[in-house]
Design a binder for these strands. Structure first.
Lengths: 336, 336
DNA sequence: CTGAAAGCGCTAACAG
DNA sequence: CTGTTAGCGCTTTCAG
């Protein structure tokens, strides 16, 4: 293995000069830098990550904790993970993958052994048991999602309440008076995942404000549930003309189910969703939607972490404003 | 930060004794071990990962390279990643997440900097550009999937050829004489992903052997493609009664499309698939399928790597035998 | 702008 | 069964 002293000797400089040439932490004359770089290239030198971590107390590794639970949409998690890795690499960091299953002990382990410099935690619950730990850890962290109280923590997420409102307002603007929200699976609400509840809050508040009739239906994510929920909706709200879907796997099957029940989308029923743009676009009838920008959230999460690692203060809460795209699934309410 | 010398002092032993008590690499008297463990607990000691890696030249981290490409089914990748992480933890290892995008340079980087001890590479192509590198690296690796030639490498995967054959044989047994394979998206074949081709080989070979008519149709993964491909199949093979689906996102929509075209499944058309069991079970008409055991493959991949790290020889090729489960989508061919 | 040298915290000979 | 000690390869004062 070629080490820094080999490079130094080859370039006719001291090891510290090589180190500084690499880190840029102090000025190096152009000529010396050239020689060092040449030596590095010729010898194929790669600094040893462990030695570096030991000497500098920085591992240049971030931990990413991904959820495994039922009711979360896998492609969103994956897209998020990819954007975290990609962004981390831009800052010369790598990403260690942890599963939710490892729990608090896992977080403590990677932080206390200095395996990672900082942590990103996904799928935060309203009363997440990891909160006290994250506050106590000597390493910075960013949470995707908002717990009940985030004092002393850094959180980022789509503004799901505003997203729910935006969907309602759009439908209201189109003249719809009776709305329904088809939400996430019941277990997601039971375990108090904040984002699901926030959508409900926004949806209900906006509907009330606009004087619209509204109903909320948590729903299994299985496509087979689509037909059942569609029938139930039409039965309970015969005058229904506007539907908001916050349940990725159900979106396409639900639109199909409506059509099979003889309702044209958007002729009889306007549909909007909160989901990744790619999904909304891929439905047979492209769906008007508020984007779930997993990629952007991942990128921003890493950027926040990098600022914290650099000693910069960052806002405790970052709520991304909803961005709605009109597609083929919404239209003005047909006159009776 | 509490370090090993603190623990040693607190327990009245030498640092090396603490180290050995932790690693078990040499016998420690019961009494001493107790004292050391007590000291560790009382002080909340955690060995520093970097220091450990430097001194032992083992980071206890594995690299996992995940594919990002179009045409791969995200939940399979995710399930695979989770099983790798879970199994790695059982061996006291962590997992560093790399994206395909980083390419060969990424592999070289994490290997040469000693960030990781070993690598797992997914989505291997027939003529994968990473092969020479993996052979040359001084660290062991395991590939998920089989390249054209795997001499000097370790590969593991479902036996996709046998899986394709199993599907045909099952349909043949039920009396079906005209079969079609609805495959992965064209780009998957174009870039020569081995597993997709192997399914085709197995399907075609088994059909020919049994004297059955057969046709292969690569197909986009979008649900919207289902209706189109269904019509095309029936048009080109009017006598079609057996379909093999190797395209996860298309499975449910395709079954729906057949029914909408007036074909009963399994009454008029028997359908089998190669996909994760959970997917096959979740379709409205549960589908007879050969399981894609991502979890098992992940586990086995880690176990192979651990053996290699331990200096044990392992087989170059591990092909998992297909396991077929009969469900509601297959039935004997109706008499004309 | 550059060098010398003291660690970072742990492991693994070596010695007993 | 346990202790002593010499590194592992790099960063970062301190000195010039």
């Amino acid at each position: 293995m070629v080490k820094i002293t080999d490079v130094a000797r080859h370039a006719g400089v001291s090891p510290s000069t090589v180190s500084y040439a690499l880190s840029g932490k102090r000025p190096i004359s152009e000529e010396t830098r050239q020689r060092v770089e040449a030596a590095i290239r010729e010898l194929g030198y790669r600094p040893h990550a462990g030695a570096r971590a030991l000497a500098s107390s920085r591992s240049n590794v971030l931990a990413l904790v991904v959820p495994l639970r039922a009711g979360i949409h896998v492609p969103v998690v994956m897209q998020f993970a990819v954007s975290v890795v990609t962004t981390a690499r831009r800052y010369d960091h790598d990403v260690l993958l942890l599963t939710q299953e490892e729990g608090e002990e896992g977080l403590r382990r990677v932080a206390d052994t200095a395996l990672v410099d900082a942590l990103i935690v996904m799928d935060v619950q309203l009363h997440d048991p990891r909160l006290p730990l994250l506050r106590a850890l000597d390493r910075p962290s960013v949470m995707i999602g908002f717990p009940a109280s985030h004092a002393g923590l850094t959180c980022i997420d789509l503004d799901f309440k505003a997203a729910g409102e935006a969907c309602v307002e759009q439908l209201a603007r189109l003249g719809h008076r009776v709305l329904a929200l088809v939400g996430s699976p019941p277990e997601v609400y039971v375990r108090q995942t904040a984002f699901a509840q926030r959508v409900v809050q926004g949806f209900t508040a906006a509907a009330d404000r606009a004087g619209l009739a509204s109903a909320v239906h948590p729903c299994e994510a299985a496509p087979s549930a689509a037909r059942r929920i569609a029938e139930q909706l039409l039965c309970e709200q015969p005058a229904l003309t506007g539907v908001v879907v916050h349940n990725e796997p159900l979106l396409e099957p639900l639109v199909d189910a409506f059509e099979q029940l003889g309702l044209r989308v958007p002729g009889d029923l306007s549909v909007t969703a909160i989901c990744p743009d790619e999904l909304a676009e891929s439905v047979r009838i492209p769906v008007t939607s508020v984007a779930l920008p997993s990629g952007e959230i991942g990128t921003r999460a890493v950027e926040l972490l990098m600022q914290k690692l650099g000693g910069t203060e960052v806002p405790e809460a970052t709520l991304l404003a909803p961005r709605m795209t009109e597609r083929a699934s919404t239209a003005p309410r047909a006159l009776p």
